[in-house]
Design a protein around this nucleic acid. Structure first.
Lengths: 361, 361
DNA sequence: CTGAAAGCGCTTACAG
DNA sequence: CTGAAAGCGCTTACAG
């Protein structure tokens, strides 16, 4: 207590109040939340009973339940997740781990947005919180593995947006359920959900053939991704069946790589009359390159993409493409993991695709 | 033990092994991870000492430290986050809460991808895990508030991608540090990071004026968002200064809304010679509508967008736009929150914009 | 149907 | 510099 309290002036009083308010503010932010014990005391029952009510057990007499609920509401009680998780060994959360390329590459990829959002909705609807992790660098690989091992999450959904990902293997030994959105490149023993890349690419090339195109090139994705491998394989196979040769350039699923690959293709074979791009982003890049080279789409060169992202409706001309059910695939991945957490099936699933014909081919 | 064990045949043996392996597999997945106590026993020291080493305290003799580290590595020890969090009252994680529109609207918005990724990288670099939450429905609002109140996270970064969000207000009373990516519509007392919407929009309209355009329309974003309000306000103000009248249509920041707004505008004022779209997505929609109406860009109608997303490089013609530092803004938001967790500044920040002139205006 | 008690795996004063 | 002990806030057999 200040020594000069007996001489307190109104100003002193105001100052004092101010400091008190600040302290209260501070204390409030650090103040402990009401505990289960506080609720028990207020309701005049045991902690066990409160715990049962809070967890929805039906073995509690309804009048007692009401008593407890009132205390919970009065106090604004919310269970401490750390304490709960410590004893139940569940976290009620899952990790969505997205391989993040260095230097912002692919950073506005619509796939990221679609997949992460669709999966998140699904998980949240099932009462699971989602922890988003970006796994790019080697350190982050270690970090990710530690994180999962530590028991931070009940399960993992892997979204490999690039190469030969070491993550599936790294996560295999953790004993935590893992699913992969997209078939992983290394055949780890983990279930996945994918779309029918072979079927989709085959449809695309057949369509071009049906339109009377004869020199059909392709822009492939990076060859360490199974989606790229499968689409390229189907392109080659379909052409081979009709006795035509492949004309291939490799991109990395970005717009700019599509543009560069198209320029290369035009140089390699100026007489080509069609191109199948392994995704829409590269198709958009290819269309720009064609424009710059003075070729008309589809009159001179027909273009088919893959994915049917929304942007495919806004190209000039609108893009013919293979619809891959991105959101459905994400939802299916989430459900597969959710099922596994309940001890359900670990069977991988392949979703069908559909050709969407617009004006570019 | 099976009653017929004495009659076991080789086949039985194999079967038995198989079952054993399965059980071991099961047990392994449920098996308790090594605890701090196990490490202490193995190293022949107390739990306190192990804890100190694991947490990097420097007060431990180096030979003892080595002993402990060896035990940690041998056992593959990883601390249990729930137990740690229970006593430290920290979680070392933050929530990134994105307002998620119903029905997949905006779902491939590049903003989501850019902002979430940039912020995640920043948080992860600081050792914070990110919990991604989608807050769309009224239930999710409640859920979100509870989640934060329960102490699941040390701080919150809010990303309002639409309307008059009730979240800032709902989170204000929790005592948990919150920052907003983008100035919130309701003036809650929380720090934010935004780009200079007024400055950016002013640059856009001035540029159009400088090009000799005389009937300049705008496609605004939804008016419950401050970014939309500010951009529209600056458009109006700039035209007013030069004695011109505003021609306004309202979109919702999606491509399709941009196309519809443009069609409306053309109907309202067929003689317009320029349009300022409040984001690039709507500008892309507007360009499609102009194409369908037979207007050439920029000869008949000049178009300026806002954001400078990557797609702006791929329109025909390439889009003149205002560069808003999306990723920088997300990084700044993350840093602001990180700083607040250390007791640092709560000052809001505004980032500068820059006009990028390409061929559409 | 309800309660007392043990225990989940850590950290942190407090002694020494 | 190191250790014994208390305690974080829950859940869950185990009795009654």
């Amino acid at each position: 207590m200040p020594a000069d309290l007996h001489a307190a002036s109104p100003e002193d009083g105001a100052l004092w109040q101010h400091e008190t308010a600040q302290r209260n503010g501070l204390r409030e932010s650090k103040m402990r939340r009401p505990t289960l014990e506080a609720v028990a005391t207020r309701a005049g029952v045991s902690k066990s009973t409160v715990s049962r009510v809070v967890n929805g057990q039906t073995t509690v007499a309804s009048d007692i339940r009401d008593l407890v609920m009132r205390a919970v509401n009065d106090l604004g009680y919310v269970p401490n997740p750390a304490a709960r998780s410590l004893v139940t060994r569940r976290t009620d959360s899952v990790a969505v781990i997205v391989s993040d390329p260095p230097a912002g590459l692919l950073s506005d990829d619509p796939m990221f947005s679609m997949v992460v959002r669709a999966a998140s909705r699904e998980f949240e609807a099932a009462g699971k919180q989602v922890m988003l992790m970006l796994a790019g660098s080697p350190e982050s690989l270690l970090r990710t593995r530690q994180f999962v091992t530590a028991g931070h999450v009940d399960g993992v959904m892997l979204v490999s947006m690039h190469g030969a990902d070491p993550l599936p293997a790294a996560l295999a030994g953790t004993g935590v359920p893992v699913v992969s959105h997209g078939r992983p490149a290394v055949t780890a023993e983990l279930p996945w959900v994918d779309n029918d890349n072979v079927g989709g690419a085959t449809q695309a090339v057949r369509h071009l053939l049906d339109q009377g195109r004869r020199r059909i090139a392709t822009i492939s994705g990076p060859l360490d991704m199974t989606a790229a491998q499968d689409r390229l394989g189907a392109y080659r196979e379909t052409l081979r069946e009709t006795g035509r040769r492949s004309i291939v350039a490799i991109g990395d699923f970005t717009r700019i790589s599509g543009a560069e690959a198209m320029a290369q293709l035009l140089e390699d074979d100026p007489a080509l009359d069609a191109v199948f791009a392994a995704n829409d982003l590269m198709a958009i890049g290819a269309m720009r390159a064609l424009r710059q080279a003075g070729r008309r789409v589809p009159d001179d060169v027909a273009v088919v993409g893959y994915d049917d992202i929304e942007a495919a409706l806004y190209t000039d001309p609108p893009l013919t493409t293979v619809r891959s059910p991105m959101a459905d695939q994400a939802v299916a991945s989430a459900r597969l993991l959710l099922g596994m957490l309940e001890g359900g099936s670990t069977a991988s699933v392949t979703l069908p695709t559909e050709l969407v014909v617009r004006d570019s081919a």
